[in-house]
Design a protein around this nucleic acid. Sequence first.
DNA 1: GGTCACTATGACAACGTTGTCTCCTCTGGG
DNA 2: CCCAGAGGAGACAACGTTGTCATAGTGACC
Lengths: 327, 327
Amino acid sequence: MSDVARLAGVSIKTVSRVVNDEPAVHPDTAERVMAAIEQLGFRRNLGARNLRRGSTTGTIGLIVEDVGNPFYSELNRAVERIATSFGRQVLTGSSEENSDRERELVLEFCARRVDGILVVPAGLQHGYLVPEMRAGTPVVFIDRPAGDIVADTVLVDNLGGTIEAVTHLARHGHRRIAFLGDSPDIFTAAERLRGFREGCVRNGISYDESLVSMGTPTPDSVGDAVKRLLDGPDAATAVIAGNNRVAVHLLRALAHAEHRPAMIGFDDFELADLLNPPVSVVAHDVSALGHAAAELLFARVQGDQSPPRKVVLPVHLVARGSGEVAP
Amino acid sequence: MSDVARLAGVSIKTVSRVVNDEPAVHPDTAERVMAAIEQLGFRRNLGARNLRRGSTTGTIGLIVEDVGNPFYSELNRAVERIATSFGRQVLTGSSEENSDRERELVLEFCARRVDGILVVPAGLQHGYLVPEMRAGTPVVFIDRPAGDIVADTVLVDNLGGTIEAVTHLARHGHRRIAFLGDSPDIFTAAERLRGFREGCVRNGISYDESLVSMGTPTPDSVGDAVKRLLDGPDAATAVIAGNNRVAVHLLRALAHAEHRPAMIGFDDFELADLLNPPVSVVAHDVSALGHAAAELLFARVQGDQSPPRKVVLPVHLVARGSGEVAP
DNA sequence: GGTCACTATGACAACGTTGTCTCCTCTGGG
DNA sequence: CCCAGAGGAGACAACGTTGTCATAGTGACC
């Protein structure tokens, strides 16, 4: 900026005035300054500006498990949309379902003085956030609640959705239903398992633990579970996939099976309707999840001091075929 | 920091020393400072630090068309991985295929003094980047080259891939092949169309413009194209989808068709192998694209001054079934 | 005992901005 | 002709850090 000032033959403050469109600058002077800016390729340093003004940095942080997962990238997009409408930019990070990495990212974001943080939490302990939140960085939890602190949270109705799935299958005559879920350490997985259990009870099906398989889904783990749960005399006649990744692995494992069980997935996914048979799912609006969380965050950024809110978004069953076959 | 200093009864500089793990601080003093830091929830302001040190900000910018598109989110993930290994964080933005928005994002990133920018360019004019690049912000173009400047670029072999697709179809007896591409303003779309043409020539097929449909893919636009190209006496017997989004819309349009043409998509996508028939594609390694671009960017960040490089990554045809049916 | 090396600490300036205050020069009204 | 007021511009400090230099204290050695 001082280079610009020198070239234009004015003071540094006048350059600042021009850059900030402040009034009380003579048009001729302004023009000279503009020319100098152009010539030198000057661009105001936002970091210095924010430091001096004590204003916000105009950035928010978003931490998800994996920005490459379509579920999270749709979330990312929704968040970005809201952030843009508030004139903010988004720093993203993947926690890889690792709570140390999550913490690292959060603290780094705080050191960068982001205006707020959206996080799909990996761990169960979030005490480390208390000082940051007290220092004025709002945090909103997405898809999973905070472990041990009270904070704004936006969830989907995991329990209700899974109950609905079980009920739907029961209505089509299934009594032996298997449940394939992600690691039970993950809130959504645990909650959906709880919904599965509750769904069985409500439909007069005895809950059979041997029909449940939980764990980080890999092609092998899901393949093994399929062999175990869907073979033999006591085989399950229907199966619920606990999330989109389980569903994908499950579909691949079932692709060449002789007789396929009925199936319902939790989380919708692209092309589900084009598979054979089309896959029925418990769907929810991922964009709405991102929107709601981001809107809540920006309300906090703008000073909303009301007590922490918990929002639960509805889910709905989309019957496409795979869940409507008889045993 | 001055609060911490006051509480610990030391100078501000000593706090700085403790925070930076500098030697020459008495253990007792350090402990007192640490306690004060803990008590006050102090966190160093990275913005101020970077300003003072004149160092890099530890961030890079990534601009794609849409962070929610699986293709770009996979790219995002690959870039993030490299960035993390270099201790950097990633600011992301969606240009929405709008060159003004792209420019806005780039300039905002520059004002934030990112260490470098990765961009999937939307427009054809990048002169606005020259001052920024001269000022020392390296820029690497991904998937599409810069419009009117020379810069580092990482592409995939669009031409070769499409030629291969045509050849593959020709080998299976097809003579009337349709091509559905994205808007010809997009480099990859234009290039793949060129490959289609060249592929026809090489295989002794007369290039028939009436079998080509280019434009931003929507369910309707693709549906209309399908009706036009695949009906009637002169209908195409095979079709090439110019990118992953065209492919998805095409599959949906064909889902209930009586006799389906042979089909090959450009860009692989999840579940392609589970459709009926499984979809043959010209695949390329999106992660490798991100890796290569990010590695190149960080080489520049670290001072590599060699002439701009152009990297073209290979593609390969994955035959799964949809491309291997006779006319 | 004086010098030297070394440890531990602080004062101060500077990074690139912008808010505040001040100063100078007009213009127009009395 | 004087003065009030407005318009235009600059000097200076401050934002939160850290690099440089200075200083005080402590042993160890000749």
